[in-house]
Design a protein around this nucleic acid. Structure first.
Length: 905
RNA sequence: GCGAGGGUGGCUGAGCCUGGCCAAAGGCGGCGGGCUUAAGACCCGCUCCCGUAGGGGUCCCUGGGUUCGAAUCCCAGCCCUCGCACCA
C-alpha cells in the first residue's frame, strides 16, 4: 500500500492528536470556572474511590457527565464540572499491609495514576477545584462539622447492638449491611453483631423530611426514591399499654388498632425486657430465648408460652403471653398483641399453638349497614354470597381494612374510624415508627477521619475545640489492631477542658461522612475558615445533574440529603434542602459475553488498552451510542470498530473539504434539501442531548454525515451549505469526541477551540416534518411499484402532486361532520370539477381523522428538493410536476399527501 | 408477601406519558445490488405473509374493555428483573 494513498492523507492518528488537544485545553483554561460565575450548570459525577485504576464503569460515568458539561458549555452556560477523590477507606490499609507501604503513599499513588487516566480520556475538569478527602485540609472539616452537629444535638454516643464485619474488623452502619443474609457492602462477609459504645449521627431526627421530600423529587428515578422510602420505612400507628399480671404495663406498637377486639394472645420478642426477666425463673422461656439468641434458624411459628397473661384494655380479657421469635426486638416496641384473624403471621402462630381466632373486621362491601349502626351482625349482605362465602378467617387471615364486627359498641365503624377512636378510648397515643436507625459513624480503622473527641476521666467525652483542628492522623504503623490505638504519643493528650490527662478517641469516621458534603467543597475548595462559602453555595447549589451508580441509592444519597438539610437548618447554606436536582444512575457495562465484567470471568476490558488502541474519542463515542445512560449494555468489539470508522469517515470528509478536494458549485434543489437537513439535525441533537439520549443524538449526526457524502457524490455542493454542514457536524460531535473535532475545527480554520465555540441553533418547521414524510412515503411507493410490477431498470419516473381543488375538498371534509358531498358542492369553485369533486368527496366520507397536509406548492417543493435521492436510488430520470403541468391524467390519481406516480421502463 | 420497573418482529432495542401515515426507528445478523482485479471497508436496497402500479392480510405476553381508531388508555391474569422483607 502506498503511503500517498488518498485515504491515508485523510486519516487521523489518535495517539498524536489526543495529548496535543489535552494540552491545548489546559493552556486555555477551558474548564476553569470563575468564582464570580452566577448560578452555573453544576454537572457532577460521583467521585471515584481511589483504587488505582479506572474501570469501564468509571469511564462510562465520566463520559456521560463530560459530554453533558461540554454541551452546556457550548451552549454558553457557565459550567461547574469538578473532580475529586474519595480516598479514605479500608482497601488502602490492606494494600499498605500487603505491600510494605502506608495508606497515604499508596493512595496518593493511586490518585496520580487515575488522574492521568482521566486526562487521557479527555475529560474536562476544573482541576483547581480538585478535592481529596484524605487530605487534612479536607478532613479537618469533617471534624469541624462533627462539632457543629454535636452542638446541634445531632451526635450521640450509645451502647448499641451493632453490625460487626469480622473481615474489615470494624462496625458498619445498617445501610452498609446488605441482603437477607446480612453481608458487608464492601467485602461480602457475613456480618456479626456486637454490643459497643459508638458515635452516631441522629439522622432519625430528619426521617420525616427525608421521607416526605422524596415525593416531590421528580428529577430522581423512581426506583431510587422507592428504595429510600423503603429504607426509611415509616409506619403510622399507635401505641397502647397492656397490663401483664405480675410484671406491669407493656407498651405495644400497632398499625391496626382497629383489630384490638380480636387479640387472642400477646407476643414479645426474645430480647424484650419481660422475656429477659423470665429467663431466670422459667425454664422453657430460658431455653427458647437461648435458642433464639444463638445462630439457630427458628421456625416462623416457634414460640413458648410464658404462663403469664396480659389484660386486653378493650375487652378486659386475659390473653396468654408468648415469647416468639417472629416478634423483632427492634421493630416497634418488641411487643405486640396478636390478632390471628387479621394478620398472616399471627394466624400461622395461632394455628400452630391452637389459639382461638376471632374475626373483628369484615370486608366493607359485605356489610350493608353504615357506620354507627349497632346491628351490624344482622346487616351482613347475604345477596353478595361470594364475598361472604370466601371469607373464613379460621382458614386464612383477612388483612384488609373493612368494617368492625364483634367489637362491642364499635361494630359498624370503618377500620379507619376505629383507629381514630380507639387511641383515645384505650389511652394510647398516635405514633410513627421508622425502620431508619441513627447513622453509626464509628469505624475501628486507621485510614479515616479521626473523630475529634478526647476522653477525660473527670470531664468525660470532650470535643476537640475548632481551633485545635485538624486532629491529624499519626504515622501509620503496621500492627494487628487499630494503628491509632498503638500510636501512644498521639493518643495521650491533655483534656481541652481541665487540662488533665486524657485519651483521644481512636475510632475514625465512616468514609460516607466524607462524601456527604464533597459537592459543597468543590464550590469553594480553598475556603480557610469554613468548609464552604455559604453565599456561594446558596447560589451554585443544588447540583443540576448528578450521575453515578445505583449502589449508592440508599447510603451515599441518603446521607448527603441529610447533611444538606442540616446545613440549611444551621444557616450554613440558604434555601437548599436537597443537594441533587436530577439524578441518573448509569447502567452497567457488561463484558462481551453479556455478563458483568469481572476478574474471575476474565471478560474485563481495560480503558487504558482501548485508549492506546483506538483512542479516547472512539471509546467515548462507542459508550455513548451503545445505549442510553441508565441502561446496561455489553461491550462489543464491532461497536468499538464502528465508532472508530465513523470518526475516521467524518474526519476524512472534513479534511477533503478543507483541502479543497470536494468540488463545489451549484447543487440546485439539492442544496436547499441539505440545508433543511442540517437544521433538522441541529434541532434533534440539541433536544436529545438535553434529554440525556446521547445515542439518538449521535444517530442524527451519523445520518447527516452520510447525507453529506451523498451530496458530494451526487452533485457539486454549494460551498456555503457544505461549509455550514461540516461546521455543524464538528460542533455537534464535539461533546462526545472532543479531540478529533478539535482537529477538524483546526482544519476548517475555526476560531479558537471547538470546546469553546458556540453551539449551532436552528428551528425545524412543521412543514419540514410533513415534507420529509411525503418524500419518504413517495420513495416507498416507488419501491413498492418497482418491485411488485417487476420493473428491472426504470428509465423515467414522473411524479405529480394533487391539484389545489383536492386540497380544498379535503379541508372541507375535515371540517364537516354531516353531508360532506353537499358541503363540498356548495362551493362554486369546486362545483366546476363536478363528478371528480363528488367522487373524491365520497372517498372522504366517514373518514374521522385528517392528517395535516402541505399545500400543493409545498408538496411540489419538497419532492423537487428530494428528487435527487430518487434519481440516485433508481438510476432514472425523475420529473416532479404540479397538477397543471403534469402529463396525461397523472395528477388525477394524486391526492393530498400522495402524489401520482408513473414509472417508465 | 409488599413495592418499583418491565414483557415489542431472528436477536438487540426505540415507540407507550400526549391513541391516528405504526408492519412499528436505529443497530446486529441474514439476503440482493453497486464499487473493486479480488477480499475487506464503504455505498444503496430487502429482511411477517400474499400480490405483475403504490393493494390486502396477520401482528407489539394472554384475555377482556373504552374508542370511529389501541403497541400506546382501563381491568384481570401469566411471566421476568430489581429493591425491601418474620416490619406489628
Amino acid at each position: 500500500m502506498s503511503s500517498a494513498d488518498a485515504t491515508e492523507q485523510h486519516r487521523f492518528d489518535h495517539a498524536a492528536i489526543e495529548p496535543k488537544w489535552q494540552r491545548a485545553w489546559e493552556e486555555a483554561d477551558v474548564f476553569r470556572i470563575d468564582d464570580d460565575a452566577v448560578d452555573p450548570a453544576y454537572v457532577l459525577a460521583m467521585f471515584p474511590y481511589a483504587s488505582g485504576e479506572l474501570h469501564m464503569g468509571h469511564v462510562r460515568n465520566y463520559t456521560i457527565t463530560d459530554a453533558f458539561a461540554r454541551f452546556e458549555r457550548l451552549r454558553g452556560e457557565d459550567v461547574l464540572h469538578p473532580m475529586g477523590w474519595d480516598s479514605f477507606g479500608l482497601p488502602a490499609e490492606n494494600a499498605a499491609e500487603d505491600r510494605d507501604t502506608n495508606p497515604r503513599e499508596w493512595t496518593m499513588g493511586c490518585i496520580e495514576t487515575m488522574r492521568d487516566q482521566l486526562i487521557r480520556m479527555g475529560f474536562g475538569y476544573d482541576w483547581e477545584r480538585e478535592v481529596t478527602t484524605c487530605d487534612p485540609e479536607y478532613y479537618r472539616w469533617n471534624q469541624w462539622l462533627f462539632n457543629r452537629f454535636n452542638e446541634e444535638g445531632l451526635v450521640s454516643r450509645d451502647a448499641r447492638e451493632v453490625n460487626w464485619c469480622p473481615d474489615c474488623e470494624t462496625v458498619l452502619a445498617d445501610e452498609q449491611v446488605e441482603g437477607e443474609d446480612e453481608r458487608c457492602w464492601r467485602c461480602d462477609t457475613r456480618v456479626d453483631s456486637r454490643e459497643l459504645d459508638q458515635w452516631m449521627f441522629t439522622i432519625t431526627d430528619y426521617a420525616d423530611e427525608l421521607r416526605d421530600a422524596l415525593e416531590e423529587m421528580d428529577g430522581w428515578p423512581n426506583n431510587v426514591r422507592q428504595m429510600q422510602q423503603n429504607w426509611i420505612g415509616r409506619q403510622d400507628g399507635a401505641s397502647v399499654e397492656f397490663d401483664v399480671a405480675g410484671y406491669g404495663p407493656v407498651e405495644i406498637f400497632t398499625t391496626r388498632l382497629d383489630t384490638i377486639y380480636g387479640a387472642t394472645f400477646f407476643a414479645i420478642a426474645p430480647g424484650h425486657d419481660l422475656a429477659q426477666q423470665l429467663v431466670d425463673e422459667h425454664e422453657a422461656v430460658a431455653e427458647y430465648v437461648a435458642r433464639a439468641e444463638s445462630d439457630e434458624e427458628l421456625p416462623e411459628t416457634s414460640g413458648v408460652f410464658t404462663g403469664m397473661h396480659a389484660t386486653n384494655p378493650a375487652t378486659g380479657e386475659e390473653i396468654p403471653v408468648y415469647v416468639a421469635d417472629y416478634v423483632l426486638e427492634d421493630v416497634g416496641t418488641g411487643a405486640l398483641y396478636a390478632v390471628p384473624a387479621h394478620d398472616d403471621r399471627d394466624h400461622a402462630f395461632a394455628t400452630e399453638h391452637e389459639i382461638p381466632i376471632r374475626q373483628v373486621v369484615a370486608p366493607a362491601e359485605s356489610v350493608t349497614t353504615g357506620p354507627g349502626d349497632d346491628d351490624a351482625e344482622s346487616g351482613v349482605d347475604t345477596t353478595d354470597e361470594s364475598v361472604v362465602d370466601d371469607l373464613d378467617v379460621q382458614q386464612q387471615a383477612y388483612t384488609e381494612d373493612g368494617v368492625l364486627v364483634n367489637s362491642g359498641a364499635y361494630d359498624g365503624l370503618t377500620s379507619e374510624e376505629a383507629r381514630e377512636h380507639f387511641v383515645e378510648e384505650f389511652d394510647g397515643e398516635f405514633r410513627t415508627e421508622y425502620r431508619l436507625r441513627d447513622w453509626l459513624i464509628s469505624r475501628q480503622r486507621y485510614w479515616g477521619t479521626p473523630i475529634p473527641v478526647v476522653h477525660c476521666d473527670t470531664c468525660g467525652f470532650v470535643p476537640v475545640p475548632d481551633e485545635e483542628l485538624p486532629v491529624e492522623l499519626p504515622e501509620f504503623v503496621h500492627t494487628t489492631g487499630n494503628p491509632l490505638d498503638a500510636a501512644d504519643e498521639w493518643k495521650h493528650t491533655a483534656c481541652p477542658e481541665c487540662g488533665g490527662d486524657a485519651v483521644r478517641e481512636t475510632d475514625t469516621m465512616d468514609t460516607f461522612v466524607d462524601s456527604s458534603w464533597y459537592f459543597l467543597r468543590f464550590i469553594s475548595p480553598d475556603a480557610e475558615d469554613i468548609p464552604f462559602d455559604a453565599e456561594h453555595a446558596s447560589d451554585w447549589m443544588p447540583v443540576d445533574r448528578y450521575v453515578g451508580g445505583i449502589e449508592h441509592a440508599v447510603m451515599h444519597l441518603l446521607y448527603a440529603r441529610f447533611f444538606t438539610k442540616v446545613f440549611d437548618d444551621i444557616g450554613m447554606i440558604d434555601g437548599v434542602r436537597e443537594p441533587f436536582t436530577n439524578l441518573v444512575n448509569q447502567g452497567m457495562v457488561l463484558g462481551e459475553d453479556g455478563f458483568k465484567m469481572s476478574k474471575s470471568r476474565g471478560n474485563g476490558v481495560s480503558p487504558v488498552r482501548i485508549i492506546d488502541e483506538y483512542g479516547a474519542d472512539t471509546a467515548r463515542l462507542f459508550i455513548m451510542e451503545a445505549a442510553q445512560p441508565q441502561k446496561e449494555f455489553a461491550w462489543s468489539p464491532e461497536g468499538v470498530d464502528s465508532a472508530n470508522q465513523f470518526l475516521q469517515r467524518v474526519y476524512a470528509l472534513v479534511s477533503e473539504f478543507a483541502a479543497g478536494e470536494i468540488e463545489t458549485g451549484d447543487g440546485g434543489p439539492v442544496d436547499s434539501y441539505v440545508e433543511e437537513e442540517i437544521d433538522a439535525t441541529v434541532v434533534t441533537v440539541s433536544e436529545e442531548f438535553e434529554a440525556f439520549r446521547f445515542n439518538h443524538a449521535i444517530q442524527a449526526v451519523r445520518d447527516l454525515v452520510s447525507l453529506l457524502r451523498q451530496y458530494a457524490d451526487h452533485t457539486e455542493p454549494d460551498e456555503d451549505v457544505f461549509e455550514r454542514a461540516v461546521f455543524a457536524v464538528t460542533k455537534l460531535l464535539a461533546p462526545v469526541a472532543p479531540h478529533v473535532t478539535e482537529e477538524m475545527w483546526d482544519l476548517l480554520d475555526g476560531d479558537g477551540l471547538v470546546a469553546e465555540a458556540a453551539w449551532p441553533t436552528a428551528t425545524k418547521s412543521d412543514e419540514y416534518e410533513l415534507g420529509k414524510r411525503l418524500v419518504e412515503n413517495t420513495r416507498e411507493d416507488i419501491r413498492d411499484i418497482v418491485s411488485v410490477v417487476g420493473i428491472e431498470s426504470p428509465s423515467r419516473i414522473e411524479i405529480a402532486v394533487a391539484p389545489a381543488w383536492k386540497h380544498r375538498v379535503r379541508e372541507i371534509a375535515a371540517e364537516t361532520d354531516g353531508n360532506v358531498i353537499g358541503a363540498v358542492m356548495q362551493h362554486d369553485d369546486l362545483k366546476r370539477h363536478g363528478q371528480d369533486a363528488a367522487d373524491y368527496a365520497q372517498d372522504l366520507v366517514g373518514k374521522e381523522h385528517f392528517e395535516a397536509q402541505l399545500s400543493p406548492e409545498d408538496e411540489r417543493d419538497a419532492l423537487d428538493s428530494a428528487a435527487w435521492l430518487i434519481e440516485r436510488e433508481f438510476d432514472a430520470e425523475v420529473a416532479v410536476y404540479s397538477a397543471d403541468d403534469a402529463p396525461d391524467d397523472l395528477a388525477s390519481k394524486a391526492v393530498p399527501g400522495r402524489p401520482g406516480i408513473n414509472i417508465e421502463e
